Amino acid sequence: MPSLDTCLAFFALVFVLGFAPGPDNIFVMMQSVTQGRKAGLVAMLGMCAGLAVHTLAVALGLAAIFAASATAFTVLKVVGAVYLAYLAWQAFRAPVGTLSAPVEQQPDLRRIFLRGWVMNLTNPKIVFFFLALLPQFVHADRGSIATQLCVLGAIFILSTLMTFGAIAYFSATVSTRLRSSPKAQLWLNRMAGTVFLGMAARLAMAER
């Protein structure tokens, strides 16, 4: 097990990094802004589910194998970029409603969760980030390496829940009045589509 000092130092680092602009927290923010606080929080949970998979992959050594394969990186990068472009297309086509819309018009939370999960899993940069960051906080004299990696991954997920949760909460608070206006919501949908397109282009051009 990592020492308490190691856990606290790791938590402080990833907590600050959680607020740095990136594809995942921007996705959570846009879901919260365009579809409400609950949608943002569910998207956050999907992202954390993806992080759990990444943690297990690193702990089992699968991520290192993946990182060594240029083909795997390219395939995952293309899949992720295509998925983001699909989200952009859906955002541009999203119907304009209001906060008083009936229940059946409310966002599909299961779909939003899966979007967050798939988006996180298809971001190859997370694999490299985990491989570069987590081993720096692992010490051979503290026991099983895999166990330490899993503990650090759990701390990372806890930090993500806190940072992304704050982003989802406050983004929804700021956008509540905007979402009550059909014209404002149309603008928000277009902004979301543009953001997703930009993220797709950025991921498509990413290099190992």
Rank of each mutant, 00 (worst) to 15 (best):
M44A: 15
A12C: 07
A68D: 13
Q136F: 10
G143I: 08
N123D: 12
A12G: 03
L158S: 13
R177A: 11
L41E: 11
L17V: 11
M191S: 11
S100D: 12
V58L: 15
S144D: 15
L13V: 12
S171K: 11
P21A: 05
R110W: 12
T34V: 05
L84E: 00
F170Q: 08
A68C: 02
R37H: 10
M119I: 00
A68E: 11
V103I: 09
M29P: 00
G97A: 05
M30C: 05
L51I: 09
G153T: 04
A52V: 15
R93F: 09
A81I: 03
V174Y: 10
P95I: 02
F66W: 12
G36F: 11
A64W: 11
Q31K: 14
A52N: 13
G46Y: 04
F27R: 01
M1R: 14
G193Y: 01
T122F: 12
V151I: 15
L203E: 11
A12P: 08
Q106Y: 02
M30T: 01
M199N: 07
V195K: 01
A184N: 14
V151Q: 10
F137K: 12
L197K: 06
L121A: 03
G153A: 10
F164N: 10
T98M: 07
F11C: 06
A146F: 13
V174T: 13
F170K: 04
A9I: 06
A72K: 04
G116M: 06
Q90T: 00
P2N: 08
G97H: 07
L152D: 06
V28W: 09
L41D: 07
V16E: 06
A166C: 14
A206D: 13
I145M: 15
G198W: 07
G50F: 12
C150S: 09
I157R: 08
A12I: 10
G46T: 06
R177H: 08
F196G: 03
P182H: 07
V58W: 03
L60P: 06
C7W: 01
S144I: 08
A146Y: 15
F156V: 08
A20W: 07
H139M: 15
A85N: 01
G40A: 04
G61K: 10
A132L: 12
G80S: 01
V75Y: 02
T74Y: 07
A94R: 03
G165V: 02
T98W: 13
T71Q: 15
A166F: 15
T74L: 13
M191I: 01
K77D: 01
V14K: 01
A166N: 13
K38H: 02
P102D: 01
R115A: 05
R179D: 03
A184I: 11
A64E: 14
